[in-house]
Design a binder for these strands. Structure first.
Lengths: 157, 157
DNA sequence: ATATAATTAAGGTCAAAGAAAGTCAAACAA
DNA sequence: TTGTTTGACTTTCTTTGACCTTAATTATAT
C-alpha cells in the first residue's frame, strides 16, 4: 500500500518537470483531487520539498491564495562549494545528510549508485558511536566525499 | 515438527525465488498469516537473512511501512563476502582499508572513481576522532559501503 | 462616493490519532 | 545450554481535524 504522501510528491515533481521547475498550485484543489485533508499537502511540502531537498516554497492566504514551488537549480560546482563552506557545518543529522545526497542525485550531480553508496557511509548504522560525536563525524565524512567528487571531476582519468 | 522460524524462512525464500531476489513485505501481515508475534519476523530476519547469510534488509516504519529483502549475488561477490565476514574485523587501519579498496578496484568490482570516493570516506582526515575509536568506525563504514555495493547489483532501482 | 463592517476564500499550525516497524528481556522448548 | 517464541514498550512516519490568520469581496452606513 503506497503512501499517499509519496504519490502526492511524485505528482508535484511531474508537474515541476513539465513546467521547468516552477509552479503555482491551490492547496484545497490538490487536497480535493487526492481526497485528503488540506494539511496533508503541507506535510508533503514540509517533508519532501524543504530547502534541503532543493525547493523553495512561497505562499499567500486569502482569496486568490496560492502555493508556489520553485525547484532550485544551482550549478553543480557552486552547490558543492556552498555545501563545503556553509551548507554542512561541523555537524549534520542523518536526515539532513540523506536529503542533501538525494538532492545531488536528483540534480544528476551524482549517479543513483553513488548516492546509495554515500548514504550507506553516513548512515547512523555505519557510524556507531555516541550520539554526541556522531553528527560531527558524519559532517566530516560527507564533506570529505564531496571534496573527492569535486576533485575527481578536475582529474583527467 | 519443524520450527516455525524455519517455515517462515522457507516461505520468504520461495517468495524471493519468484521475485528475482528482491521483495517487499509487511511485517504484521506476515505475522498474521503465520499467527505469530510480529517480532518473530524480526527474529527470522536477524538469524537467517543477515548480511553474512547474503541478504540485505531495508525497512520503513509508519503508515505504509514495509520490509524489503534483497538477496545478494553470492558467487559473483566471493571476495566481498569474505571481507564482510572475516576480512575486516571490528577494526581496521587506514592503510589496510586503502589496500582493500585498491584491490577491489583492481579486480574491477568497483570503478576507480568509486574507489577514490570510498577512500575519502574512510581516510584518517574524514574520521576525526580519538584514535581508540577510529579504527572501529572505519571498519564499520567500510563494511557498510561494501554491503551497499553488493546490494546495488541485486537492486532494481 | 467613501469609509467601515461583515462575509467568504484562501492558506497555516499543531496536536492527536493511526499505522506501521524495532527492541529487549522474559518465558519456553530442544 | 542454546535457540525460539511472546509480549510489553518504543520509535518513526502518516493522516486527520479543529482552530487560527490573512486577503479579497461584498454589504452597509455616512
Amino acid at each position: 500500500m503506497a503512501r499517499l504522501s509519496d504519490i502526492i510528491e511524485e505528482f508535484i515533481k511531474s508537474l515541476l518537470q513539465e513546467s521547468e521547475g516552477q509552479l503555482e498550485l491551490q492547496r484545497n484543489e490538490l487536497a480535493d483531487y487526492f481526497e485528503c485533508a488540506p494539511s496533508q499537502i503541507n506535510y508533503v511540502l514540509a517533508t519532501r520539498f524543504s530547502i534541503n531537498h532543493g525547493y523553495y516554497i512561497e505562499s499567500r492566504r486569502g482569496g486568490g491564495g496560492y502555493i508556489r514551488i520553485v525547484r532550485l537549480d544551482v550549478d553543480k560546482n557552486d552547490y558543492m562549494r556552498y555545501l563545503l563552506s556553509e551548507g554542512i557545518g561541523s555537524k549534520i543529522s542523518e536526515q539532513n545528510a540523506m536529503q542533501i545526497i538525494q538532492r545531488m542525485a536528483e540534480q544528476n550531480y551524482i549517479s543513483e549508485m553513488t548516492a546509495f553508496l554515500m548514504k550507506s557511509a553516513i548512515s547512523d548504522k555505519a557510524i556507531a558511536i555516541p550520539a554526541a560525536l556522531k553528527d560531527n563525524i558524519r559532517a566530516s565524512i560527507l564533506k570529505s566525499m564531496i571534496t573527492a567528487i569535486m576533485t575527481w571531476e578536475g582529474k583527467k582519468v
